[in-house]
Design a protein around this nucleic acid. Structure first.
Lengths: 196, 196
DNA sequence: ACCTGAACACCGTTCAAGT
DNA sequence: ACCTGAACACCGTTCAAGT
């Protein structure tokens, strides 16, 4: 029976989670679906578009659920759910990072515009609000990609277990780094400061 | 005559600058050097090591020249020279980003340890100083990769020229984003504050 | 409309064998 | 010590032709 776009994304997401981003190839995906490689190009213009669709799938839990707290709380909520979504699948941060450059994920665009809104609510002028949003996204993607690569390195049996108790847990470290940015936004010069 | 490690890195750097990261392949590099692909594997363990050496080459101007200013000035100086180094060659930010994950560049390690020192000088405790350093590096790489991809998009003849005058110039935007982080470090709670 | 088959133009890496 | 030749096991993408 017919190949649907959904099924392709489903299988791609499974492949990613089971074998990692290096094994998420168009040919492997086609083989796994029992079709010829060319068949995928009826449903997707190219691999970038396919990866964009997978990114949208991963980011789904990060886009539903709006918060109406003050701007700091909104930034934290967005970034927490974003990180969780990235961690929920193998190489999630790396895949979404690759997608950020191509601009092929609508979910990522949604997250960016919400962060931009939060920055504007903090009193950052319109021109700089977008920059703040991208800076925050880069932080979340960078931190989580680091974290995820260490998880996979450790899973391959490297870590002595001791170092892990000396350091803070990743969630607290993530919040610490994010606070650097949020604090920066709160104190950045040139912004009309709106209390609360 | 014999192929030296230096010559391979030279040619790789040229290839990168002339044709971009997608065309920097082991086979292409070997062809350009007039050797067989296997020859490269006498001098480099794998492509990651080669890319690490190219990254070190690119980052050379960013590692010589120490500053002894206060910590804020040091962070700004490091990041300014780092961005300039990345911008000096095609896809510089993308190549160095890829290398950050593999840990195959000693130059990048040097930059990271200097940023860690600066964070420590700001009063950030030892555990968090490394995190601050990585956060800053992620910012510089993320910002510059964005900037560079736009430059290349524009060079391909897309931009209407108007939008570019409405926005601030990239160097000022870069400084703005960096100030977010520096300000955050200066105000982050829990650090023993050393004035000046 | 949707897919196959086959081709095109490539990859990174290994390794016996040569000099 | 340093390199070749050839192989191995792949890639993404296109497109005439089929149903």
């Amino acid at each position: 029976m017919q190949l649907r776009r959904r099924d392709v994304v489903d299988k791609a997401a499974r492949l990613l989670d089971d074998y990692g981003i290096a094994d998420l190839t168009m040919r492997r995906l086609a083989r796994e679906l029992g079709v010829s490689p060319g068949a995928l190009y009826w449903h997707f213009a190219d691999k970038q578009e396919l990866l964009g669709a997978v990114a949208d799938r991963i980011l789904e839990p990060a886009v539903d659920g709006q918060s109406d707290a003050e701007w700091q709380g909104r930034i934290h909520a967005i970034c927490r759910t974003l990180r969780n979504a990235l961690l929920s699948t193998t190489d999630g941060a790396e895949l979404v990072s690759a997608t950020l450059a191509t601009g092929k994920s609508t979910a990522l665009a949604t997250v960016l515009s919400r962060l931009t809104d939060a920055a504007a609510a903090a009193g950052v002028d319109a021109d700089h609000a977008g920059l703040v949003a991208r800076t925050i996204i880069h932080y979340v993607l960078g931190f989580t990609a680091d974290e995820q690569s260490r998880i996979q390195w450790d899973a391959a049996g490297a870590l002595p277990e001791e170092q892990s108790i000396l350091n803070e847990d990743p969630t607290a470290r993530f919040a610490f780094g994010l606070d650097l940015l949020v604090t920066g936004v709160a104190h950045v010069p040139g912004a009309r400061r709106v209390s609360r």
